[in-house]
Nucleic acid binder design. Structure first.
Lengths: 221, 221
DNA sequence: CGCGGTATTTTGACTAGTCAAAATATAATT
DNA sequence: AATTATATTTTGACTAGTCAAAATACCGCG
């Protein structure tokens, strides 16, 4: 069985390739996993031995099909657990990420199947991220429209929070910009770098352009 | 934070002292944890350093108050998780032990509190074992009456399955001797080493005397 | 082309947990 | 009391994962 360290490496790589099969650098991985770069090199070589990824020296890594399947399994556990913690155990939307980070390595397939049944086979987690199915296919990654590149004054709905950092989640929580919330973009000010939008129950919210790119939306009729 | 190995050592010791503060030998521990005796000696010395237990050389170990509290916390997680898996996720009574064995080290206090609320603060798990409360006190260990030492032809109710090995659990499952089941002991045959009892919905069951001692009961009016 | 800067890899060392096997202490038996 | 059996401890070695710091490769730039 894969240790939880191995699972974390693979998941981190998967999360940073997102469909496009571009290569992930050692530095990025070291940052993501909070270890020094030398450690990543060592570990990555071991994982390449096991056939879980390809390592081009001095370039970076890319998951093999076996590695991808394993990573998708972990991601599935993570997201189903998050959904469960929010929907069933009524836990706070912005704190479940860390909890799921620990639980994803301890939940067996058997338990996961029960959770999946219990929840009625959801397809997205509370942050709007798609939940891979049992066979490892992820629901269509519809080219993401964010607050940064959407039309102005159109009725929208928050589809997904891309940046999962606790601080950002907290901000989203405060302003009511959670997945499912209705809103429309009032105006963008490239000069000041600020974007204004009108959130349905809540009022006007201002946020920086980089931050706006972290909130995916879809239009509603 | 205590590693899961540490948690397992402490839990194993707690489980083998059961109220009475008698000492646990290295051999018993090695057997329980499935490691060689030398490993236990090494580990135990480290735990003694940390003040989690007392180690009398060549005799055995005994938990300190700090160690006991930690072990009770783990036991509480284990039993609440078991209860949750059976009651909420409808998992099989005889398979949850192993699952809980993994989950008990990954569930945070925060998640545990939600589970406890969700279940309505149960006091015993599906095997009839008492669940320690948040402060680490275990509901009265009423001197255990088992099928071995109870009165004959009296209406009884299974209170607890003492032997948690998968094989025994499976047998209990088959014969319907689960906690809560009604029964009465028809006769004991010391000569043949067999005990016969009448289980309420199920009929007559025969079991060996050592096995009879693994099923705790209480009388019902 | 050669040079500096950045990212990556290597090297040596450390911690937690483990085993195999030899050494030692304790208890049991004759 | 001497010997044997049994349990415990010690010793040396190994794996997984990690860090610090030195060595190396690669990039762009003057």
């Amino acid at each position: 069985m894969a240790t939880s360290t191995v699972e974390n490496y693979l998941k981190a790589i998967l999360l940073r390739t997102e469909g496009s099969d571009h290569i992930v650098s050692m530095g990025v991985l070291a940052e993501a996993l909070d270890v020094v770069p030398g450690t990543v090199t060592t570990m990555v070589k071991a994982l390449a031995e096991q056939g879980l990824l390809d390592h081009q020296s001095r370039q970076g890594v890319r998951l093999t099909e076996a590695g991808r399947q394993l990573a998708l399994g972990v991601l599935r556990k993570h997201r189903l657990v998050e959904t469960f913690l929010v929907q069933t155990l009524k836990m706070d939307w912005s704190e479940v990420h860390e909890e799921a980070e620990a639980l994803e390595h301890a939940v067996s397939e058997r338990v996961l199947a029960q959770i999946d049944d219990f929840l009625g086979h959801p397809t997205t987690d509370p942050h709007g991220d798609p939940i891979p199915d049992v066979n490892g296919s992820v629901a269509g990654g519809a080219a993401s429209v964010t607050l940064l590149n959407c039309a102005l004054n159109q009725p929208l709905c928050v589809a997904r929070i891309i940046d999962q950092s606790p601080a950002f989640l907290e901000f989203v929580q405060q302003t009511g910009l959670k997945p499912g919330a209705r809103l429309q973009v009032v105006r963008r000010e490239p000069a000041s770098g600020v974007l204004h939008c009108e959130v349905r129950p809540g009022g006007e919210v201002a946020l920086g352009l980089p931050e706006a790119g972290k909130i995916a939306v879809r239009s509603v009729s």
